[in-house]
């Protein structure tokens, strides 16, 4: 079955079995391995991508359900030379250890910052309920998101001036 979708601004068409999960389509058919599979049972959020602007768990979606959709993965958020403020935040605040959860954490946090540019610690923790980290104890992840929120607000203020 043919699926056409746009990932990080580029449009792809591939012939897939209907049972192909979106996460496998992204990783195996498109070779974008930044999106991870952690639990594979819809719990851990390592597979989080944006589908038409909403954060979703790509292990719990069929590629065919995403027909025509606009998808952003961690690779589409920033580049090594021009990191997204969340990527810089995780770097600066040591928001990762093994890094396995990080792409999902960043994609989920990006959605939070879109709706809530200046989240409280409570709002950050609450919003990341569907993202599990087995290493950091979450503390530095919260700091990383706060770091990014500060940087993004600073940047938008500078743009206003």
């Amino acid at each position: 079955m043919n699926v056409t979708l746009t990932v990080n601004g580029k449009t792809y068409t591939r012939d897939v079995e209907p049972r192909t999960l979106l996460v496998h389509f992204i990783r195996e058919d498109l070779g974008l391995t930044g999106t991870h599979v952690g639990c594979d049972t819809s719990q851990c959020g390592a597979c989080t991508v944006h589908l038409n602007g909403d954060a979703v768990k790509s292990c719990t979606l069929l590629a065919v359900q995403a027909q025509g959709a606009d998808i952003t993965t961690i690779e589409g958020l920033g580049t090594p030379g021009d990191l997204h403020p969340l990527q810089t935040g995780f770097w600066e605040e040591h928001g990762l250890q093994c890094g396995f959860c990080t792409p999902g954490m960043i994609m989920a946090s990006a959605e939070l910052l879109k709706h809530t540019p200046n989240p409280s610690e409570d709002q950050i923790r609450h919003h990341l309920e569907g993202n599990y980290c087995r290493c950091t104890g979450y503390h530095n992840i919260v700091k990383a998101v706060q770091h990014a929120a500060g940087a993004m607000q600073g940047a938008s203020q500078a743009a206003d001036d």
């Binding site: 819809s42 959020g45 989080t48 909403d54 979703v56 719990t60 989920a108 919003h127 309920e129 569907g130």
Partner: peptide
């Protein structure tokens, strides 16, 4: 219900 990603779908 679930978490933000579950609620989006």
């Amino acid at each position: 219900v679930g978490d933000p990603m579950v609620r989006n779908r």
